[in-house]
Design a protein around this nucleic acid. Structure first.
Length: 215
DNA sequence: TTGGCGATTGGCT
DNA sequence: GCCAATCGCCAAT
């Protein structure tokens, strides 16, 4: 992406007490599992007409090249083409006809792989996040990939977006002490369910899954 | 052209 | 804990 090292816009100064800085593509690992680990603690920002939604990612899953559970495993198709974009692009798909899931493409241009964003905690726009999920307890609003995408107002229109370029949806970083990152098998899979490619911040209450997979 | 199925969630037993 | 909801993709007919 273009470096955004200049002054923050007035809008960003007003809305960014957490000092979110855009992540450059060069800062992102271009290896799927390295990126999956790297993204725990990173920030996802969606600037919408209603205001800024910003969350700190606390749980991810890697779906690397050669993984039978990866949507790109069987090659390029109409649905999964965003997985083949250079690392740092959004891949958004509909699951069970109900929920969207947000991923980050994770390898070189033309290589299909990605990182699923499974859970996050609010950084900015908590009221807006809540408004996107009426009736859902705050503690659960970003817990789980379908919930995360819904609260962040991420849908099909976000598919293919460059998360390392200026625009409404982007990846950033904030100053925060390094998290202790745990790993486990991935959740909800029917294939390749034994690979330890889920990464999460240990003890964080926003992490999804059964209790034994959160400690 | 069709039908099986999925990286989930929420409601009900 | 079990299961329905609900859509689009894609492999197979």
């Amino acid at each position: 992406m273009t470096q955004l090292t200049g002054e923050l816009t007035a809008e960003q100064q007003d809305a960014a007490p957490a000092q979110i800085r855009p992540l450059t593509r060069a800062a992102l690992p271009s290896d799927t599992l390295e990126l999956a680990r790297f993204l725990v603690g990173a920030v996802l920002v969606h600037d919408t007409p209603a205001g800024r939604l910003a969350v700190r990612i606390v749980e991810t899953e890697g779906y690397p090249v050669g993984d039978p559970a990866c949507h790109a495993y069987r090659g390029l198709t109409a649905r999964n083409r965003s997985l083949f974009l250079e690392h740092g692009h959004a891949y958004v798909y509909l699951i069970y006809g109900v929920w969207y899931c947000a991923n980050v493409s994770s390898e070189a241009d033309g290589v299909g792989a990605g990182v699923l964003l499974r859970a996050a905690e609010p950084v900015e726009g908590a009221a807006l996040l809540a408004r996107n999920r009426p009736g859902v307890p705050t503690a659960d609003i970003l817990r789980g990939p379908g919930r995360l995408a819904a609260a962040m107002a991420i849908d099909r229109r976000c598919d293919g977006v460059d998360l390392c370029a200026p625009g409404p949806l982007w990846l950033g970083s904030i100053d925060r002490p390094p998290a202790v990152i745990g790993s486990s098998t991935r959740i909800g899979l029917t294939r390749a369910a034994d690979r330890p490619w889920r990464f999460y911040e240990r003890g964080n209450s926003f992490v999804s899954g059964p209790r034994r997979l959160r400690v």
